[in-house]
Simulated scan of single mutants.
Amino acid sequence: MTDQASGFNEKAARPDHQGHRNRLRERFRVSGADAFPDYELLELLLFAPLPRQDTKPIAKELLRRFKTLPGVFGAPRERLKEVTGVGDKVVDHLKAVEACLIRSAKAEIDTRQPLDSWSKVTSYLEIAMQHAEVEQFRVLFLDKRNGLIADEVQQTGTVDHTPVYPREVIRRALELSATALILVHNHPSGDPTPSRADIQMTRQIVDIAKPLGVEIHDHIIVGRGMTVSFRGMQLI
């Protein structure tokens, strides 16, 4: 009798995870995402990889550690797994969401139609690059109508340096019959201010490209939550 009572009390004391999940889903259907704080959206997202766990504390800890939803999705796998309750299934799920976000943003510019919205370009670049832990040098190759021919990460470096070879950039542009380029790289420090080396490298590429009929539209540096345009700063 004591064992039965003990078991009953233990069961009654457990959180009603299924009831909570059903209520959260129903509120999402009725009220929409705007009525949800970030931790509840993340909590809802974690229902799939964690079908039998309370996902609220995990969601809150992920946001505490990585600050924002993009920060969670963009965090490196091993750092995500430092959070209690986060294993390979959760990481795979978060990385799949990140991949969907990147592809959705890229689809807005990846149609060979003229790039007529600078905000779409910068939004895509921020999603793709702002949380990378090492520098990447990316080039958007454009045709004569400013349609996107190719989007390539040409070099990956360290936390504060990426080797860039200007002649290789232009050689690739000629291979693709590109007539204009947008140069892009990220600053993992979060500060997108151009360095002296950034400015010098950009000018080298401009000097090589111009006689060959290839225009450098811009060089964009991606920081945390903001970008800097060389064209906007009159550095090109």
Rank of each mutant, 00 (worst) to 15 (best):
P49H: 05
P192M: 03
E168F: 01
T202V: 04
G157T: 02
A33W: 07
E40F: 09
S119C: 01
R145V: 06
L125D: 10
H93N: 12
L69G: 11
I149L: 15
D54R: 11
A178R: 10
F137S: 05
V139A: 02
A5P: 03
D16K: 12
R145N: 10
N146V: 00
E43Y: 07
E10G: 01
K81Y: 07
Y124K: 05
I127A: 12
V30N: 07
G19I: 06
A180P: 00
H17E: 12
L142K: 03
F36S: 04
A132H: 12
E10P: 00
V134P: 05
V214S: 10
Q136S: 09
V159T: 11
D207R: 10
Y39R: 06
F141C: 09
E133Q: 13
A197G: 09
D116M: 06
I102C: 06
H131D: 13
L174K: 13
K67A: 08
F28S: 07
S229H: 11
T162G: 05
H20R: 08
I58E: 11
Q4S: 06
V30D: 08
D191H: 06
F230D: 13
D143L: 02
M226Q: 13
K210I: 12
D34W: 00
S31A: 02
A12I: 15
A33G: 09
P49N: 04
L174R: 12
D88E: 13
I205K: 05
I149W: 05
L63P: 07
D3I: 07
V153A: 13
D191F: 06
P51R: 11
S117M: 08
S31N: 10
D143Q: 04
I102S: 03
D34S: 03
L212P: 04
R64F: 05
S119A: 09
S189G: 05
S123T: 10
R167M: 02
R65I: 07
V184C: 13
R103W: 08
D34M: 00
V222E: 01
L42T: 01
K89I: 01
Q4C: 03
D198Y: 11
Q154E: 15
A209W: 05
T2K: 13
L44R: 11
K11W: 11
L62T: 00
G7D: 09
K144N: 10
L24M: 12
P163A: 13
S229K: 04
D54W: 12
V228D: 12
R23D: 09
I220K: 01
R171V: 04
R27E: 13
Y124E: 07
M1Q: 09
L80Y: 06
A105S: 15
F141E: 04
H217Y: 14
N186D: 09
F137W: 08
L50H: 09
M233A: 14
T68Q: 10
I220C: 09
V222R: 00
R21N: 13
D160V: 01
A128V: 00
I216N: 04
G71E: 01
T122L: 09
A12Q: 14
D16Y: 00
Q113V: 02
D16G: 08
P37R: 11
R171N: 13
R21P: 01
H131A: 08
G225K: 08
R224M: 07
G223T: 14
I149N: 11
V121W: 08
G232A: 03
D3Q: 04
F230V: 12
P15N: 02
V83G: 04
V184F: 05
I170Q: 09
S177I: 03
P70D: 06
F137H: 06
C100A: 15
D16A: 11
I127Q: 14
E82K: 08
E40N: 07
